[in-house]
Design a protein around this nucleic acid. Structure first.
Length: 825
RNA sequence: GCGGAUGUGGCGGAAUUGGCAGACGCACCAGACUUAGGAUCUGGCGUUGCGAGACGUGGAGGUUCGAGUCCUCUCAUCCGCACCA
């Protein structure tokens, strides 16, 4: 392969050089402006895939570009290394998760290194290491201290066949994703973080994140799901009990024709006791227990329910209203009970039609029949209140306000805000996670582990069996302990934390990765935080990003962080596809990064993945496209090496004298390219067009090499510029060529070039001549030709004259530097 | 159902402020060099037409001297949420 450059030796050489010289190690430097760029750290699954390569290539270009722009750049990498796959591998092969994980980390790290990424490996973190999870436990204790961690009984998804708890994502259409058994609900005592306390702030502060994609902000907003409404009480007929409901439509209270309790509601038992319906109710409640939340709350599930035999009293008109229980009312939203207005709520409408419950229209509108029997669907639009006593005639908006106020005045109800965001269940009955640092004492109850006893270490000798319980339950020397308060024998918590807890604060750990006393020092975090540019897949748009925001706000509140949002700018990259679908082993469409790097080198791999599509869009893998990028780098190699001899004695002048047209053209291209690449990399991250621009420059240089009399200064400037601009994308080949050209300093240490305005001024410009918006001819004129002269020249143009002869010229539009448009009839 | 995104040659994509649609790359075609080419170089390459030209950014309207870009409606694909009272 005489004609291609030897990427494998070049890449290895430069990677070793950078490492030896510690190029990417950074320290806090108050004299320099900082820039923190971060790619979402990976789970150490064993091998890098193309999605990783894309993610890290993007981050690396940004980091290198910002460094060359004089910023003090923090660009760290680590491992999100707790989690199920390690434990499943342990169950299957008998290896300890530590071994499996460490081997995977080593392997992936060496793969990462072949990509030539500018990481400060000194700051590497791994969430499964005691020096890290010590502080995950610290976070738990702080949350506990601030009443943001609590334990309660909660229904979880339970697979009776696998004997284990399943995450919602592991439940597919109501069945276990592994064995297809119908998933049940089981009540377990679990730890929660009270993220709901932060719901309003998490919502409000989205507006302070202009650097986030709207898509992500909207997803978070919907997930938080704030809704304003009214909570009010209804007496239960013939009983001392009352029920509370939440509604966003108090204006429709006169249209209530039945009430619904969630099957799990505590009142169900009380009010149905002794009624003829008691047996039906119990049967229904029992049946619902075995249907998972996931399938019960699916919109496709048909609504069903039973009458409880009891009645509630409508506080506004004293009507007796039957109380039902139904599958479509959820215990964990609002109060677990609703007022049903079939005329103005589609769900209630469906249910009422099915069970022949009356429908009463209370909002009149021309868009909907006034007679309920003629309705085919609920009417939820604008209108005025009717059949509502004194409130008739009010609009929906007025009605909501007025009835709210009325209820408040009469002590029936109050204005309330509900969120659909739930508290975060963090307990996992698993081994491979950070142990929850709590101890249960018979006398003192739940006692937090004192800070000086952290970390609570995972024990080594553990048997891994799929039992549905934490394996830690079987390790006596782990769970047997003494109460930190009274010294009496006590039992440790054996659940571990959700791995999302570990990843909710890692970005702050990178600021002080070696601190053994604290998760990070405030001083370091004040310098580095917030992350200026965060990059990762959109699949983390809700959970990870929400949890990280929650933790940051909490750390801000306890004065550990000055910022209260972790990520100033967010780039959500698209997936890497092959043959139209996501690369996966089962589809057999995986392209391995190792193979590509082996065949073409890291520079080609990086270049292709950045060139093939803009970063936020999905990228279709194309082997021939990779080859195109490889050819381009070879072209650069040949071009630059062919210039070396000519340029040996050339030094760049301070200013360029009068140039001949060809030289001027090349110099124009050089500076236009600087401008283009700089603008594309500054905030917009259009890597694909930046790379196109360097290709155009290369083409222009090749063309210039054919010119008889070449201006070597202009050529040298072009060569230097090309190498610098291309460096963030393809760092190895450019460093090598730079060195071969006789330069000692590394490109990475050079300042980013600025363009010369003067070089961008052209003497002549092509003007398009249009007739009624259609291009008819072009003319080349001096750049500074005046508006009047342009018009005059256009009208004198032969082609225009010919085409407008016999027509009346209505007006002429002149856009200097661009076009002249003649409107003729 | 609700919310969001996307739609441009054979393909990936460009057009940043309403101003030459198709930059750059791939594929393809022709030529050069060559014992050879899956190397390299040169040229061509939206559709249609001999041609001047006409048509062309999912579709239908509209605004404008001028629309891929703005407005209205509509279709398709993808993603997220999905009985949230």
């Amino acid at each position: 392969m005489e004609s291609s450059y030897n990427f494998s030796s070049i890449e290895k050489k430069w990677q070793d050089y950078w490492e030896e010289k510690q190029f990417f190690k950074v320290d806090e430097d108050p004299s320099k402006q900082k820039y923190y760029t971060l790619e979402m750290f990976p789970y150490p699954s064993g091998n890098l895939h193309m999605g990783h390569v894309r993610n890290y290539a993007i981050g690396d270009v940004i980091a290198r570009f910002k460094t060359m722009n004089g910023l003090n750049v923090l660009h760290p990498m680590g491992w999100d290394s707790f989690g199920l796959p390690a434990e499943n591998a342990a169950i299957k092969h008998g290896h300890h998760p530590t071994k499996w994980t460490n081997e995977n980390i080593e392997n992936m790290k060496s793969q990462l290194k072949t990509l030539g990424l500018s990481y400060d490996w000194d700051r590497e973190v791994a969430t499964c290491k005691p020096d890290y999870y010590k502080f995950t436990q610290w976070m738990f204790l702080k949350l506990y201290e601030n009443d943001l961690a609590y334990k309660k009984e909660a229904a979880v998804n339970w697979c009776p066949s696998c004997q284990t708890v399943l995450a919602n994502e592991q439940v597919v259409e109501g069945a276990c994703e592994r064995c297809d058994t119908v998933v049940e609900k089981k009540k377990l005592n679990q730890w929660f973080f009270k993220i709901t306390d932060y719901a309003q702030r998490l919502l409000d502060d989205l507006s302070e994140l202009p650097g986030w994609p709207d898509k992500v902000k909207i997803m978070q907003k919907n997930w938080i799901g704030r809704s304003e409404g009214c909570e009010f009480n209804l007496a239960i007929d013939g009983s001392d009990e009352s029920m509370t409901v939440f509604t966003t439509r108090p204006d429709t209270v006169f249209g209530v024709t039945y009430m619904v309790l969630a099957p799990e509601h505590s009142l169900v038992d009380v009010i149905s006791r002794g009624t003829p319906q008691e047996k039906d109710v119990q049967e229904f409640v029992h049946r619902m227990q075995f249907i998972s939340d996931v399938s019960r709350t699916s919109a496709e599930t048909e609504k069903e329910g039973v009458f409880t035999g009891a009645y509630a009293i409508n506080p506004l008109n004293g009507e007796k209203i039957p109380i039902w229980i139904a599958n479509y009312v959820l215990m964990d939203y609002g109060t677990g009970a609703i007022m049903a207005v079939p005329a103005h709520d589609q769900r209630d409408f469906d249910f009422a039609r099915k069970y022949d419950i009356p429908i009463k229209v209370v909002i009149k509108s021309e868009d909907s029949p006034a007679d309920a029997s003629e309705m085919t669907e609920a009417y939820t639009g604008e209108g005025v209140m009717a059949n509502s006593g004194d409130f008739d005639g009010l609009t929906v908006e007025e009605g909501i306000k007025t009835i709210n106020q009325h209820m408040q005045d009469k002590g029936i109800g109050t204005k309330t805000i509900n969120f659909r965001l739930r508290d975060w269940l963090i307990s996992r009955q698993r081994y491979w996670g950070a142990p929850i640092p709590m101890i249960y004492c018979e006398d003192c109850g739940a006692v937090p582990v004192p800070y000086d006893q952290l970390p609570v270490l995972l024990p080594e000798g553990v048997e891994f069996k799929p039992s549905g319980e934490s394996p830690l339950n079987y390790v006596e020397n782990f769970y047997k302990t003494t109460c930190p308060k009274c010294g009496k024998e006590a039992r440790r918590e054996t659940d571990t934390m959700d791995t999302f807890v570990c990843s909710s604060w890692y970005f702050a750990r990178y600021c002080s990765p070696h601190n053994s006393e604290m998760p990070f020092s405030k001083e370091d975090a004040d310098y580095w935080m917030a992350v200026d540019q965060y990059i990762g897949g959109v699949e983390h748009a809700i959970l990870h990003l929400m949890y990280a925001r929650f933790f940051t706000k909490f750390l801000h509140d306890i004065k550990m962080l000055s910022v209260d949002e972790p990520f100033t700018n967010l780039l959500t990259q698209g997936m890497v596809l092959k043959d139209g679908s996501k690369m996966s082993k089962s589809k057999g469409n995986v392209v391995s990064p190792e193979e590509i790097i082996g065949k073409y080198g890291a520079d080609t791999a990086r270049l292709f993945i950045l060139f093939a599509a803009p970063p936020e869009r999905d990228l279709e893998w194309n082997d021939q496209g990779v080859e195109g990028c490889y050819r381009f780098l070879n072209r650069v190699w040949r071009l630059v090496t062919s210039c070396i001899e000519d340029l040996q004695e050339v030094t760049l002048p301070k200013t360029f004298a009068e140039l001949d047209p060809d030289a001027k053209k090349l110099r124009f291209k050089t500076h236009a390219t600087i401008k283009k690449v700089t603008e594309d990399l500054n905030g917009r991250f259009n890597f694909n067009t930046a790379i196109s621009a360097t290709m155009e420059l290369t083409n222009a240089m090749n063309a210039y090499r054919e010119v008889e009399e070449q201006d070597l200064c202009v050529l040298k400037e072009a060569v230097d510029t090309l190498l610098i601009l291309l460096n963030p994308f393809a760092p190895h080949i450019t460093e090598e060529l730079w060195k071969i050209c006789g330069n000692d300093e590394s490109l990475y240490k050079l300042p980013w070039p600025t363009y010369d305005e003067a070089a961008l001024v052209q003497d002549k410009v092509e003007i398009v001549l249009q007739i009624s918006g259609k291009v008819r001819d072009r003319m080349v004129v001096p750049t500074n030709t005046t508006r009047e002269n342009l018009e005059k020249m256009a009208l004198e143009n032969d082609k225009i004259k010919e085409l407008t002869s016999g027509k009346q010229i209505i007006k002429v539009i002149v856009v200097p530097g661009k076009l002249v448009n003649i409107v003729a009839k």
